[in-house]
């Protein structure tokens, strides 16, 4: 049992070990700060993965919900509420707004949904920028208090790192349970063939709403953590550039896998960091990479690893004379989401 668990999950255990020991290895404060950001964005990308990767609905309002969570926690903690109460509240508000927005937008499909949610994301950032009495307008919210337990304040980088890591593991746990449940199967059936899912008795609209709400709950949570750790937020927190970044992390890492989004959220900023010397040209590479990945590797890094693993396994089996027909992984539908 334990061996089987190890054999199947070794990859995740290695990742976890790497994550826990990272503060011992990385001493550079700047790089460490990048790692903390990557953890926060991992949560955001994982939640985007639920709606886009597993349910097949390209929500481009994700940064908007991130912003709702960020401003929710920022405003509530500044008003004196504890972070531990403000964070779930803000996440719930984000999920609730997701529900209200999902009602009209989730009736649309494909590009229509992408554009409708993009519009909503833009509305959120415009409203945040102009509702000066509540949000402070374009100057943003400053001096958001850090999370505290008793008298302990999460002010050192290492404590913040482990705090976000804990939230990431929580997110990962929920996502893992969710996508391996019956509900998760409904998500994927909606993604693979919506009319067919409807025909076998799945309430596709309710399924999409649930996925959208859960995704936005965690997007809001990521935003809330971001706000209280960084301490200041502005309308650009909710800008659709964030959504595009997460989209790249997700596709590069591998949509519809649990490790992919995290891998993407770490690998990509790191790559960009090493390409610093290219200055503005970096973004051009970013764009080229996105196009190449979507054309040639629509299932991302994790998808690549998976099919490689599978190829090795099949060859191994053939050599053993087990000549059964094996359905190849590449036989899966050739699409990113």
């Amino acid at each position: 049992m334990a061996v089987k668990f190890l054999r199947e999950k070794w990859f995740y255990l290695v990742l976890l070990l790497a994550a826990v020991t990272l503060p011992l290895v990385v001493t550079d404060r700047y790089i460490f700060q990048l790692a903390i950001m990557s953890l926060i964005f991992s949560i955001a990308t994982l939640s985007l993965n639920l709606i886009l990767g597993y349910t097949g609905q390209a929500s481009l309002a994700h940064a908007g919900f991130f912003g709702i969570g960020a401003y929710g926690v920022g405003l509530m903690t500044k008003a004196g509420l504890s972070f531990w109460l403000a964070l779930p509240l803000a996440s719930f508000i984000s999920a609730l707004v997701g529900f209200l927005i999902g009602l009209p937008t989730l009736r649309t499909r494909g590009s229509y949904f992408a554009i409708a949610t993009l519009c909503f994301g833009v509305i959120i950032s415009i409203v945040i920028g102009n509702w000066v009495e509540l949000t402070g307008g374009h100057t943003g919210l400053l001096g958001i208090p850090r999370p505290k337990i008793g008298s302990f304040e999460f002010s050192s980088q290492i404590s913040q790192y482990y705090l976000v890591l804990a939230f990431l593991l929580l997110t990962l746990f929920v996502m893992h349970r969710l996508v391996h449940s019956l509900q998760g199967l409904s998500f994927m059936s909606v993604r693979n063939n919506e009319p067919l899912a409807e025909a076998v008795g799945i309430n596709t609209f309710a399924t999409k709403i649930i996925s959208f709400m859960v995704a936005n709950f965690f997007a809001g949570m990521a935003g809330g953590i971001y706000a209280s750790l960084i301490g200041s937020i502005s309308p650009s927190t909710a800008s659709f550039n964030h959504t595009f970044n997460w989209l790249v992390y997700l596709l590069l890492g591998g949509a519809a896998t649990l490790a992919g989004p995290i891998l993407g959220a770490f690998a990509f900023p790191l790559l960009m960091e090493y390409l610093q010397f290219l200055e503005d040209y970096r973004l051009i590479i970013f764009g080229v990479l996105l196009i190449i990945v979507i054309i040639y590797f629509p299932r991302g890094l994790m998808g690549g690893i998976e099919s490689l693993q599978h190829r090795i396994k099949t060859r191994y089996r053939l050599r053993k004379g087990d000549g059964k027909n094996v359905v190849t992984a590449s036989g899966k539908s050739h699409q990113a989401v």
């Binding site: 097949g56 989209l247 973004l283 051009i284 970013f286 764009g287 080229v288 996105l290 629509p298 699409q335």
Partner: peptide, 19 residues
């Protein structure tokens, strides 16, 4: 391929153009 793949490819193109 599905629309959404072209959509993502388009995002790549617009990043290249703007930058």
């Amino acid at each position: 391929q599905p629309h959404i793949n072209s959509f993502i490819s388009a995002i790549g193109a617009l990043i290249i153009l703007e930058t």
